[in-house]
Amino acid sequence: MTISIFRSSAIALLLALLATGCATQKAYDYSAFKASKPRSILVLPPVNSSPDVAATYGMFAQVSYPLAESGYYVLPVTLVDETFKQNGLTTPADIQNVPPAKLREIFNADAGLYIDVKKYGSVYQVVDSVTTVTAEAKLIDLKTGTLLWQGSATASSNEQNNSNSGGLVGLLVTAIVKQIVASTTESSYKMAGVTSNRLLTAGRPNGLLYGPHSPKYGSD
């Protein structure tokens, strides 16, 4: 009996979650974005505000997928990085300070994407180790310097495993195994992929608008 009540409430809770899953928050003002109609995006090497030196390139390597699948031309990130290096610009902070007009002159992109990685890496928490990647982004019109859109997103390895069985020993073993995995930079890189998709996929609440290569272009 108790079990059946528990089950019913679990179902009710899940239905409630389903209902709110796609609810829109306060509407974002897209007027500048819609007036600008960017076709190509120059992603600048992300500024790293986390303690992990791997954050800039872990994130930088993950941004092309969501932006291109949203319908934009993404300037090839490795070549962009080399071009900056050849011009003596090696730190993301210096690169993000280059005037938009100068960037447009070299790369001929419509918009620039300025990313700041706030969290990147794993934290060991007594019985668990959690990998978290959090990032903020601003899309700037490179012709005018106008802010077209800004957003932030986070992804964490403890989102999926809130239920755990095996008692305390089981938990400790899981934590140790996860620490070994998490201590490799690979898990942060994978988490950066989830964060990047959440941050830069068009069609999400308050997210980017679709670009010209998408069949949904102009529908939002």
Binding site: S64, A68, Y73, V74, L75, P76, V77, T78, L79, E82
Partner: peptide
Amino acid sequence: LPPGFHAHLGL
């Protein structure tokens, strides 16, 4: 192939 693929190969 996605944007950047050919360019990266070129690099």
